[in-house]
Amino acid sequence: MSIQPATDAAYSAPPLLAVEALSCERDERWLFRELDFMLSGGEILQIEGPNGSGKTTLLKILSGQFNDHEGEVYWRGQPVSRARGDFLASLLYLGHQPGIKGALTALENLAWYQALGGVVDRVAGVDSVNAPWAALAAVGLAGFEDVPAQQLSAGQQRRIALARLHLTPRALWVLDEPFTAIDIEGVAALEQLLLAHAERGGSVVMTTHHRFSDPSRLRRIQLGGNVDGQRPALDEESA
């Protein structure tokens, strides 16, 4: 499976992410086979497919969490397995669960992520102390900074997680169903945020069924899967 670049813009730098002959087998069943694609700065890759087609697994492979696969994932021309430190330092992954502690406030939750990812001293004129406040304001949580997250709605908890997109500067965003539990207004804002990230040279990989209003930077990849649930016979030579 391969994908043609969606835009004719010339990207001179090596692709941020390149995938070569990626196959993943779980319990003797192929989730997907021989995936080939590249992702350059400024592109948004949307992974689609029916349930059980391996979307989340592909995201986990692309975010370096799961390495039990065949084929190679390259980060800026280097295998991820070898450039792991640099890769993880450029990656922001948001999974199914928001990763937010109910007993802690929004600010405390963000503080942990800041400490894990490294605190940026000055951010577009905002220092590291004020940055979380600004990030929470940017996702519409102004006034909720000191409220324990368990008192917030599921959508608001997801917004705390989304605040990390404002707070942690990373070139590659890998997002698993980012539009889940977000209201209509939030969806539009998130779409704009993703597009703005791409416009500034960042890349996004995500699974979603959301239809972008502006598909210019969008590329799609369809994971076929075996919808009828049959186990295909494996080819001996590739085993």
Partner: peptide, 13 residues
């Protein structure tokens, strides 16, 4: 929600 990430990528890289 704000439309732009707060942190320019040039710095972030």
């Amino acid at each position: 929600m704000r439309r732009e990430p707060l942190i320019p990528l040039a710095e972030s890289n």
